[in-house]
């Protein structure tokens, strides 16, 4: 999803909403069937990623071990056997040419995909939160400066900048970490825009004025009055940004500038599979399908999180809203 749309959607959450609390949030999330199913899929993927070494050990395979005996070198390296060489040892077949085990590579690929996107998301949210809050609470000059920097940041197309940055960093730097830093480090403008706008709205509200009158200091007000209300839009943003970050990592790897071999990555598998789709379609369909399922599940889950955090949307779920008080003007 594009940055502009994300900002619009996550920023639309009302800042003045009754406290929902974690328990109510879970209840509202669970009340949405699609989101619950998506959450299960995501949970499964996370477990797979976490247990990658365990799972490959169970399968008795190593993601980087070559098996030249399993591919037909005379035919250009096509895997021997049906469906890309699926067998009792190689549950999902083997890679053409090299004969590396696909199951092991897919499982480790999940690790890279989710891990990179997670670090990138955390980084972008943290940066955005700090910069946005500083802009909203600082003096007029600080705000001007930070807002201009945010403008510049928005003007940087993430794919292009990421590409360019990856060009100049030495190969010795651990690639997954670098990609996470690049994606998160140049993509914080959305969060900071939302945080600044919401914090400014909150600052103008009477309860913040009342807190000032009670004699409390600026930072105490920011922590007690502003931060709790910023949680909903920021969490929503993070939930929806996470799947986009997965796509960005896959895209960079697909272009050959992201994760470098031999580290397995779904995007990079796709590039290699491009030329093999006729001889070994599973090699292409596996990473493509997994990428699709992962991003779809995360997006649906993100939508669910958004609904659960937005009291207006949640009231349609009829969970945790005490028989909504319809008083005057109930018709619309």
């Amino acid at each position: 999803m594009s940055e502009a749309l994300l900002v619009k959607e996550a920023g639309a959450a009302p800042v003045v909403a009754p406290a929902s609390g974690a328990r109510l949030f879970w209840r509202r999330l669970r009340a949405q069937r699609a989101a619950s199913a998506a959450a299960l899929v995501v949970l499964l993927l996370v477990l797979v990623a976490l247990a990658a070494p365990l799972l490959t050990a169970l399968a008795g395979q190593d993601p980087n071990a070559y098996h030249p005996d399993l591919v037909d070198s005379a035919a250009g390296g096509v895997p021997i056997g049906p469906f890309g060489g699926i067998s009792a040892d190689h549950w999902l077949g083997v890679e053409p040419q090299t004969g590396r085990d696909l199951f092991a590579r897919i499982v480790y690929g999940a690790r890279v995909s989710l891990g990179v996107a997670l670090v990138a998301t955390v980084l972008q949210i943290t940066l955005g939160l700090i910069i946005g809050l500083a802009a909203a609470l600082g003096s007029r000059w600080v705000d001007q400066l930070l807002s201009r920097i945010t403008d510049i940041n928005v003007a940087l197309p993430i794919m292009v900048i990421a590409l360019a940055l990856l060009a100049i960093v030495p190969e010795t730097f651990p690639r997954p970490v670098l990609i996470a830093l690049v994606i998160g480090g140049i993509n914080w403008a959305g969060t900071s825009k939302i945080v600044r706008a919401q914090a400014l709205t909150l600052k103008s509200l009477d309860f913040v004025s009342a807190a000032r009158l009670s004699g409390r200091g600026k930072w105490s007000i920011a922590r007690r009055e502003l931060l709790p209300s910023l949680a909903a839009p920021v969490i929503t943003y993070a939930a929806l940004a996470f799947p986009s970050n997965i796509i960005v990592e896959a895209a960079l790897s697909f272009l050959g500038v992201g994760i470098k071999p031999p580290t397995p990555s779904w995007g990079q598998m796709l590039t290699e599979a491009d030329t093999w789709y006729q001889a070994a379609p599973t090699y292409l369909l596996l990473p493509a399908g997994l990428l699709f399922v992962t991003v779809l599940a995360l997006t649906v889950l993100g939508e669910g999180v958004r609904t659960a955090l937005d009291p207006r949307a949640a009231s349609r779920l009829r969970v945790g809203t005490k028989s909504a008080k319809h008083t005057e003007g109930g018709a619309a």
């Binding site: 999803m1 799947p243 796509i247 896959a250 895209a251 697909f254 796709l270 491009d274 789709y277 006729q278 292409l284 493509a288 990428l291 699709f292 991003v295 779809l296 997006t299 649906v300 939508e303």
Partner: peptide, 22 residues
């Protein structure tokens, strides 16, 4: 629409090439 948003352009592109060209 959700499916569209969840599909990277290179995945759909690859599939289209495979189906319609090859």
């Amino acid at each position: 629409t959700l499916a569209g948003a969840a599909t990277p352009v290179f995945v759909i592109g690859l599939l289209l090439i495979i189906v319609f060209c090859s």
